[in-house]
Amino acid sequence: MGGSAIVDLWEGLRHAFWLVVTFDAALAEIALRSLRVTLSALVIACLIALPLAAMLAVRRFRWRRATIAMLNALMGLPPVVVGLIVYIFLSRSGPLGALGLLFTPTAMIIAQVIIIVPLIASIAHQSLRELWAEYHDLLISMNVTQMQKMRTLLWDARRALLTAALAGFGRGIGEVGAIMIVGGNIDNATRVLTTAIALETGKGQFALALALGFILIALALGVNLMIHWIGQTERDSRW
């Protein structure tokens, strides 16, 4: 049994190597779609989550604590449930059915945005709250506007926010439940690495599933390293 598993792993690695070396067209398409869907979702989620986190850090309003608690709770949102809700909204009889988005990459992006916004906002809020405690007196004494406060915090905490974004990327790229429901895992249309892995596992093609898994890990690591490199983290000083 143990020997068989090692053989499967080894076979998976070998298969992954050949798929990459021979530049398998189907694999490239699936991998690129995975990246396109998750990076699109990440950009949209960051545009929502980061200003929200900054607002929660600097503004005091009635439902602030409840909003923070809600965001923290939503970090553990079950993706399958998100997928189901998005499915209901986008299905033909649903309120947004007329848009015809079900079983498209756009539907997958919507589901991923819903899943990763609370995660990014919560992690970002933690960093921004600490920075706000540090800057509070200075910015108040400088009489800066709320918008200037938020922009200052977002800019000065940008490296910590990168971590929040990477956490969102990690959650998105590895997500399978929601995008399986709203995307349908349609070949040449909505199939991504995670849904392909689920499909191949179901078919008993463990070596191919493992190969796709290794490629997914490599992709996630590659994007992480590239973002760290672009963001110039861990250089010069502690931030």
């Binding site: 540090e134 800057y135 007196d137 200075l138 009489n143 905490a157």
Partner: peptide, 15 residues
């Protein structure tokens, strides 16, 4: 207020 500034005991520097 616009024509004032404040310096704190523990210097606050931006990152």
């Amino acid at each position: 207020r616009h024509h004032q500034a404040f310096v704190f005991q523990r210097p606050v520097v931006l990152r």
